[in-house]
Amino acid sequence: MARAFPSMKRTDKWGGMLRGVIARAGLPGRIVKSLGQFGVLWGVYFGCARLVDWLGWPIPANVLGVVVLFVLLCLGVVRLEHVEGVADFLLRHLVFFFVPIAVGLMDWGEVFARYGAVLLAAILVSSLLPLLAVGFLTLFLHRAR
């Protein structure tokens, strides 16, 4: 646990008071703090999911969530130490979540066998073309300055 959250800071005042209470209640403060941080992330995501549902926007809730949390951080409503411990942990292991999703490929072997060449061509073209486009446009914009 200690190694998983290296950037956990023990500075903020409310956290300190909360920890005092928790220590008296006999709960390990770090776990509660992590749960609280996860709660902030979950709250932002959940709020965005409901909002997207309600408005019927064709935007993934997690995309809106990134924007909303970024704005909240900029406005100082949410401070870095309210989320960063858990955020860093989740981001470090973000790829874990895609392992079970990718297991779903076991039902799609046929598509790969049949369309493999087209898929490879599509991925190749759509990777190399924008790579150069972004590179050259950035160079151009830098020189124009």
């Binding site: 997690n62 949390l69 970024f70 955020a87 989740l90």
Partner: peptide
């Protein structure tokens, strides 16, 4: 296997929202 997948990917939304931290 799908139920296990659903269970494991449940925290994916909040985890993605965490990308706002490096952005910030």
């Amino acid at each position: 296997y799908a139920p296990a997948k659903d269970l494991m990917t449940a925290p994916l939304g909040p985890a993605t929202v965490a990308l706002a931290v490096p952005l910030y």
